[in-house]
């Protein structure tokens, strides 16, 4: 099962390599990883989606905690969270397809942000499931290029 870990780390060079080194060394599977500065510029937040059973997630958490530069690890999988990915996708589109795609994207509340002669670029944000659904729906048109970020999450409510 996929777990989402919110990891607060010191914001200095080398921390990313310590975390990624730990994952490769111990053979854990990272599905995605997003790093960014937090409201406190000395702290970065990593949102790591890991694949594994409870036992593995427990080890991942404990081993992460042992890294000196890791300030806090929370498993937010079972929390009420807002999860988002950002997707950019370039799709084959002749004139007839353009309208069809536009309609389709409306349903997903995705936006068309660039229109070329024979292609267009769609931008979307949403949960992993939604992003996957968008990609699937665009496949029949012929996908030329995909870029997407990993998941970022935030726990709902105050705190």
């Amino acid at each position: 099962m996929k777990h989402t870990l919110a990891v607060l780390v010191e914001n200095h060079p080398g921390v990313l390599s310590r975390v990624s080194g730990l994952f490769s060394r111990r053979g854990y599977n990272i599905s995605s990883l997003v790093v960014s500065e937090t409201e406190d510029s000395s702290v970065s937040r990593m949102t790591i989606v890991v694949d594994g059973d409870e036992k593995i997630i427990e080890q991942v958490t404990k081993q992460l905690n042992k890294l000196i530069d890791v300030i806090k690890v929370s498993d937010v999988t079972h929390d009420e969270t807002v999860d988002r990915q950002l997707l950019l996708v370039k799709v084959n589109a002749d004139n007839s397809a353009k309208g069809e795609i536009a309609q389709l994207m409306d349903i997903f509340r995705a936006r068309i942000i660039d229109i070329g002669k024979k292609s267009l670029i769609v931008e979307a944000t949403g949960s992993e499931e939604k992003i996957d659904a968008i990609i699937k729906s665009l496949q029949p048109f012929g996908i030329l290029e995909i870029v997407k970020t990993g998941t970022i999450s935030m726990v709902r409510g105050a705190k």
């Binding site: 080398g14 390599s17 310590r18 080194g21 060394r25 042992k66 890294l67 000196i68 530069d69």
Partner: peptide
């Protein structure tokens, strides 16, 4: 050195 010794040091 820091990169090399990462897997074999506590920090």
């Amino acid at each position: 050195t820091v990169g090399l010794s990462q897997p074999v040091t506590k920090h």
